[in-house]
Write a protein that binds this DNA or RNA. Structure first.
Lengths: 342, 342
DNA sequence: AATCTCTATGCAAACGTTTGCACAAAAAGA
DNA sequence: TCTTTTTGTGCAAACGTTTGCATAGAGATT
């Protein structure tokens, strides 16, 4: 059970050459005799030689590990984004290290603290919903570690950013509801510090304004979280009020799904009595009855682009100066059964 | 923009001591004068000294990276398992490296091949559904890399295994259907090479046998994949046949959900005309109408235990001999609206 | 004063690989 | 035959840290 890996020296000794020669042979160095190369390669193959990555990383003082900090991966959104990131980075020879902040600012800070002690080639971060102080993010930059912020913006931080046009996604959704005759449109949103929530809320507000519909505070409900169970109370409070809305635009699919079930339980017909539109287009959203209308986001592409931008930054030369990228993806409105047809 | 990290030598030079002294001071070596320690620590703090992980890994010839190979993370199941693994490993100071096989044997082999070139402290693997040759897994063992197989079994491979009792989970579900009066129970399953599918199928078959119900080949349908869209055709073929079943037990929730929608479209009442039970208990399964009856698995715990077992193996001494762990988690039947009440 | 015992620190090797420079041997040119 | 060029290979340093061993200097014991 001994862990004796074959090293370059072993090969060198066996072949009566120096370690340098072996190293060069394996790299196909032009100054070497073909014969020597062949001999070395053959023996390396035979002994199942594998270069010691740790020695290499050490020598080159470079790490091939890239960290991804996400709030959660059990939901569709971030797991798809991570998959996109993964596909790009892995094919470029990098390893990804996943760090889950669990939507907690403290955990996120701890992660960043830990990462700063380890050598990391770059970091991709989607900040937690409870993060509104970005000092730790800025610290990453001060340590000169390439950084890309994706999906959720850190306002005031100058970094590469890959975002989604939440504003226009929400605007389109709400305007669609208006066009189909809805006049009393409620919005279930989430933590107000989160850029995505905020932009969707703005889109909602502006769509109402543009169409001369009144903005009612009681139609804007803050959910306490992002998962299904957080959608129940807000919906109940809306549907049991004395001014029942005729549409609900939810900040994500989970809340929309939850709203849908709650509405059904209260004997509302969907979409006749109440229209519902979500955000994200999670794969199972189509399978509800009626199928959920929602706003699709190119998550996977967002992950891929974020990874590509990070790679670009990592590979840029010391002297090249940093050109910050700011990319915003367009969403697409997907009309299914929970909203009326035009 | 230079990347000059402070090293132990820098501190040594500034303090006119040797590097060894600095190293020892930082480790609180007893032979050192308190005064020296304080001076070193203070300067280290001031210069923001961070030990070079790559140098340490190299010196100690140990890696703190653990690889997880999973078929996919966009679904609830594996992302929750990964979260469990992550929570344990991160708190023990390890980094996790996620590798996604995309349910492809080739990709999985490629991943293993790549990992064997990198130094890795251990590997957790849930094999892909198209993997039925386990040579690459055995190769991991031959390289003496600690290995834990989880969720999906690799039969014939002697390794730590953390599995779920799919057989009894399925058995219970089917027996429940029988008890509620179902007599014509169909099963939508998946790739037959996958241990989980196979055990669920066995549970299904044995439950029928035990209750003296006939086993009909046409009631056992193989879906081409695990996602929603793969459930449509199997369900249609069942419900449009001349011997329509009164219950469907699906190998996972996604297929069950899809079966449910298809049944609804064909105007079957659930559960009056047809009962449906899934497997996994994904979070959104409750939110369908009717809410999906299903078999819950302790995914998160499974992830955690797998990680703990792997850690135990990694930390075991060279001379201690390997005690293989074989752990099987119990499932729980969750009865909701898609099956009749007892 | 000579020897012994601590105490605190330094020296140097080791981990595996790459690479600039040196240099021997062979080949080419004079 | 002597010099110059080319070809192929080796030497040694470097990357940052730890650690066994050596040792200088101080204090204690004779």
């Amino acid at each position: 059970m001994k862990r004796t890996r074959v090293t370059i020296k072993d090969i060198a000794k066996e072949l009566n050459v120096s370690a340098s020669t072996v190293s060069r042979a394996l790299q196909d160095h032009p100054a070497l005799k073909q014969q020597t190369k062949d001999a070395v390669r053959e023996l390396a193959e035979k002994l199942n030689y594998r270069p010691n990555t740790m020695a290499l990383n050490f020598l080159k003082q470079t790490s091939t590990t890239i960290a991804i900090i996400v709030p959660d991966i059990t939901g569709y959104f971030f797991s798809a984004a991570v998959t996109g990131i993964q596909d790009i980075l892995v094919s470029s020879g990098y390893n990804i290290m996943i760090c889950i902040s669990n939507e907690s600012y403290e955990e996120e800070s701890r992660i960043v603290e830990k990462l700063s002690k380890v050598q990391i080639a770059g970091i991709l971060v989607a900040p937690s919903s409870t993060t509104f102080n970005f000092d730790h993010i800025k610290k990453i930059q001060r340590n000169n570690i390439p950084l890309v912020i994706f999906d959720r913006d850190c306002e005031g931080v100058d970094a590469h950013k890959v975002l989604v046009d939440d504003y226009s996604g929400a605007f389109e959704a709400v305007e669609y509801l208006i066009k189909t005759g809805c006049k009393k449109i409620a919005h279930i949103t989430g933590a107000s510090d989160l850029s995505t929530n905020n932009h969707r809320l703005q889109g909602y507000l502006d769509a109402l304004k543009k169409n001369n519909l009144p903005i009612l505070d009681k139609y804007i409900i803050y959910a306490q979280g992002f998962t299904h169970e957080h959608g129940i109370k807000p919906t109940e409070s809306l549907l049991k009020s004395n001014n029942v809305p005729d549409a609900i635009f939810a900040v994500n699919d989970r809340l929309a799904v939850s709203a849908m079930r709650t509405a059904k339980k209260l004997n509302f017909r969907i979409p006749e009595d109440i229209s519902i539109i979500g955000f994200d287009d999670e794969p199972h959203s189509t399978y509800f009855t009626p199928a959920l209308s929602t706003v699709w986001q190119p998550v996977y592409s967002m992950g891929m682009l974020s990874a590509r931008i990070l790679l670009g930054d990592i590979k840029r030369k010391e002297d090249e100066n940093l050109q910050l990228r700011y990319e915003v993806f367009k969403t697409e409105l997907v009309i299914r059964g929970t909203s009326k047809k035009l």
